[in-house]
Design a protein around this nucleic acid. Structure first.
Length: 263
DNA sequence: GTTCTCGGCCG
DNA sequence: CGGCCGAGAAC
């Protein structure tokens, strides 16, 4: 009977929440909660909402039933914190490459990453949303200070970027440039060209091509490519050796464990 | 066809 | 239990 679609404080204007009480059957009295997007699409579960909003939106602390953010649910976070996997000294390194997302009060944080729907999943996309996906201007600034580190929290040496690559916009440090380019590379499969518009150099906030990293246009020479191929080759060899060593170590360890249990 | 509603599965 | 979704009922 509760047919009213109420505004939900945790939601942006336009989103409505509805609670419907079951009035017959074995489950009479139970209630179902639905949400309606501004475009009128109905959502009847958290996964469904999550699918629609994209992976970059973490609904972990959102309570679907009440429609409120419940910070208490934060502890039951599936994503392990760095401090956590420190304690499990063995265990695979964290290969999560997700980009940081803006943390705001609302569930509907602005994704920093573009939400690209996986070609294989047939979620119907709202074309409006797909094209209007907002991205913060100069969002790369928030990558500042991010460092990769190994399992012992030791910061890894950062890469040296070729001289030809130059950062642009606010905070034109090499460190941010590296992050910006790395992010651009794994955000989309489109070629990375940098900011090709000369206007962008004079006034980035106006002419910025947001699908490209904050990097001046550059050219890649054959020598650059050869040099890079060599680096990749060496990196692969190092990885191969590391994996081999790790495998031997694990084998030795499990052998020792069995012996201990047998005592 | 679409939307509504409750059953029932599964964690 | 309650969340989630399938499927029959209703429109």
């Amino acid at each position: 009977m509760e047919r009213k679609r109420t505004d939900c404080p945790a939601l942006p204007p336009g989103w409505k929440k509805e609670e419907v009480i079951r009035k017959s059957g074995l489950s009479a009295g139970k209630s179902d909660v639905y949400y309606y997007s501004p475009t009128g699409k109905k959502f009847r579960s958290k996964p469904q909402l999550s699918r629609y909003l994209g992976n970059s939106v973490d609904l972990g602390c959102f309570d679907f039933r009440t429609g409120k953010m419940m910070p208490s649910k934060m502890q039951k976070n599936k994503q392990r914190l760095r401090s956590d996997n420190l304690s499990l000294s063995k265990g695979k390194p964290d290969l999560n490459t997700a980009l940081p997302i803006r943390q705001t009060a609302s569930i509907f944080k602005q994704p920093v990453t573009k939400v690209v729907n996986h070609p294989n999943n047939k979620v119907k996309t709202d074309p409006q949303r797909a094209t209007e996906q907002p991205r913060q201007l100069f969002w790369e600034r928030r990558l500042k200070g991010l460092r990769s580190s190994d399992v012992s929290e030791e910061a890894l040496r950062t890469m040296d970027l070729p001289k030809g690559l130059q950062s642009m916009g606010p905070d034109s440090t090499d460190e941010t440039l590296l992050s910006a380019i790395a992010s651009a590379l794994h955000r989309s499969s489109a070629p990375i060209t940098g900011q090709t518009s000369s206007a962008a150099e004079k006034n980035p906030s106006l002419w910025l091509n947001t699908s490209q990293p904050l990097c001046k246009a550059f050219t890649v020479t054959d020598d650059d490519i050869r040099e890079q191929e060599l680096k990749v080759h060496q990196a692969r060899r190092s990885l191969e050796e590391a994996l081999m060593a790790d495998g031997l170590a694990r084998a030795a360890e499990s052998r020792r464990d069995t012996q201990v249990t047998q005592l």
